[in-house]
Nucleic acid binder design. Structure first.
Lengths: 225, 225
DNA sequence: TCCGGCCTTTACGCGTTCTTGAGGCCGGGG
DNA sequence: CCCCGGCCTCAAGAACGCGTAAAGGCCGGA
């Protein structure tokens, strides 16, 4: 089901959207200010965001920036401002569309369909990366091998996830350390050796001669499919 | 350069768009009816289409359908009709955005940027530099030769990367030494000789007569594609 | 409290990579 | 003609990074 996050401080608008969207089979989340909107977006990973610009706490453009920092979810902006400078600002901040209030529900729904359609086309690839000896399911956070699930610790999964999201590409030691252990540990390359040894024992057919979790000495690691 | 196909039967609108878009560095193609628009789109493969709905020959929705038959190029619709049924129809036919005439040039340009930005993010293909004998994949940090991967050490890769990012251009010894070995070693030109010899052994068909990793005596090195 | 899983840390052997020096080649200038 | 600077080649020791094993610490659940 497609999920929509509706962000607006006017309850009647949120209510109208909730009713219309639910009736058309969307899964609706709501937020009434920018702060909670960002929180809900992180939690719920909506497929599209409908965002009012006039929020009580954070400026709308900053909300857009906050979302764009980690995600490419389509954002449709709602606003009472009709001047083009506002539109330009929002669109250049990363919004995908701009609808002025008052708006026609039909039109908003059509624009929402267009935004979702584009994104579905983009993300057509399943969140599953497959190799000769094991399968990484990024959505379910699971790894299977010979049809049998392999248990990974949180740290192990962190490494596998980053590599699986960049199949074939070299990922630097620094990037791995930074994203898994945090910026304070970017020099602890020994961690990587220990954990890659563990991962190879769990995932590779011949841990001494890995075919998928490849070390590029002095540079980083590579996930070969 | 980003290319835009402008389709409108009103010459003054086409002219205004051509001027504005060209001034901003876009490559502009034009068409005055649906039939030629489809032809130009097939020929020129624009990055985005600005389409007027009121064309003399074909209905705008059918033009959208004609484009969507073979392509996912972003389509921004221009129209004088403000009723929501027209918008819904166009968007559901596959348009990405809908702007009503008269329109603000700033806004149209912002929407155009948004449409292009989305599409670029989607098609973010790896930057690849190719020569007759080998291929350098800058994103994956890989070098292939005869379809077979060549292993480079970090220092070797550092040199190849700088040269590949400046194809055809002369890179001074000082710059290479500074970026790979650091500012303390800008005079160790012997390092370069040793490493270029290694690289040529690995990459050139005839290492004694290099065709891509060229020495410019007394000056630096050049990557010839 | 004990136990087990997970993370961190240390130590060591080994292969690869980097650095360094020596020698030869080539072309231009004295 | 010879000299010389810049380049290429080769080789060997030093330095570095990696894989592996194993031990200790932390923490939450039984």
């Amino acid at each position: 089901m497609t999920s929509v996050l509706v962000v607006d401080d006017e309850p009647q608008i949120v209510r109208a959207l909730r009713i219309n969207l639910s009736a058309r089979g969307y899964d609706v989340m709501t937020a009434y200010d920018g702060k909670s909107a960002l929180g809900v977006a992180v939690e719920g990973k909506p497929d599209v965001v409908v965002l009012d610009l006039g929020l009580p706490d954070i400026d709308g453009v900053d909300v857009i920036a906050g979302l764009r920092g980690w995600s490419t979810i389509p954002i449709i902006v709602l606003s009472a401002r009709t001047d083009s400078s506002a539109k330009v600002e929002a669109l250049d901040a990363g919004a995908d569309d701009y609808v002025t209030k008052p708006f026609g529900m039909d039109e908003l729904l059509a624009r929402l369909r267009a935004a979702v359609r584009r994104n579905v086309a983009r993300e057509a690839g399943d969140p599953v990366v497959e190799t000769a000896s094991f399968v990484v399911d990024l959505a379910a956070k699971k790894v299977r091998r010979d049809g049998h699930e392999v248990h990974l610790t949180p740290t192990e999964w962190g490494l596998v996830e980053i590599l699986a999201r960049n199949p074939g590409r070299l990922v630097s030691q620094k990037q791995l350390l930074q994203e898994v252990w945090g910026p304070m540990h970017v020099n602890e390359s020994q961690y990587l050796r220990v954990y890659f040894a563990q991962l190879r024992r769990k995932l590779e057919d011949d841990p001494a001669h890995p075919r998928h979790l490849i070390t590029e000495p002095g540079m980083g690691y590579r996930f070969e499919v």
